[in-house]
């Protein structure tokens, strides 16, 4: 029996259970605030009940990529939490400028003074178990959790249906098979290293700097600017 015939037989047998592509419901997610990324993912954003990893040097914008989801969440009166590392504080002014109302009453920030993974996990567990936050961003800086610890967090994220996004500056972080999505923020591109049901790696080209970011740069020579078309990708 040829493959075509086998497929035809299967289709006839499962006819009652098959649904068209238009009727497939995408899993729940929190929009990343970046439409192209939302379209690429199976989930329309950071998946709820899952752990996602964003990694890359800090100045290339991993935190800014996470923050892009906040204006929408805050606008919908949903709760978000941010867990800051010891030596870096989240600067809220950029977010204040992005949100239309400037109301940041739904953003809860925790500044962990410790650099012990045990303390971080404890705080993250408590944030999850409040069962209040739609998304939690954890900047783990240089910390490396063990597989069992990630497994515990995954269970909690699933239980409380929270989108847990871990950020790290490590060049080669531990890529647990439990991470639903892995995003590497690079100098010239953003690489989706893992995404369920999607061909990976997938690259989004980016420019390091956007000429309209500040009006005074318009007149500057384009030494530091990329010569790609004038379209903002991440910054701006």
């Amino acid at each position: 029996m040829s493959k075509a015939e086998q497929i035809s037989q299967l289709r006839n047998r499962l006819a009652g259970q098959l649904i068209s592509c238009d009727h497939i419901k995408r899993p729940h997610a929190i929009s990343t605030g970046w439409p192209e990324l939302d379209r690429f993912f199976l989930w329309p954003g950071w998946p709820k009940g899952e752990i996602s990893l964003i990694y890359g040097p800090e100045g290339l914008g991993p935190t800014r990529l996470w923050m892009k989801c906040l204006p929408q969440i805050i606008g919908q009166q949903l709760w978000a939490a941010w867990l800051s590392p010891k030596n870096l504080r989240l600067c809220p002014w950029d977010l204040f400028q992005q949100t239309q109302s400037g109301n940041l009453s739904r953003l809860f920030i925790v500044e962990t003074p410790s650099d012990q993974i045990k303390d971080w996990l404890w705080v993250t567990t408590e944030l999850l178990s409040v069962s209040l936050f739609e998304i939690i961003g954890c900047h783990w800086d240089q910390l490396s959790p063990k597989p069992a610890q990630i497994h515990k967090l995954k269970r909690l994220a699933e239980r409380y249906q929270c989108a847990l996004v871990i950020l790290t500056q490590q060049e080669k972080p531990f890529k647990s098979p439990l991470y639903a999505a892995i995003v590497q923020v690079g100098k010239n591109s953003i690489c989706i290293e893992r995404a369920q049901h999607r061909p990976t790696p997938h690259f989004f080209q980016r420019r390091l700097f956007y000429a309209d970011f500040m009006p005074q740069f318009k007149s500057l020579p384009t030494a530091a600017l990329n010569d790609q078309e004038d379209k903002p990708v991440l910054f701006g």
Binding site: T63, L88, R89, C91, D94, F96, Q97, F213, M214
Partner: peptide, 10 residues
Amino acid sequence: RSAPRPSLLL
């Protein structure tokens, strides 16, 4: 208030 600010501050 509208000046560009970084996302993370030391």
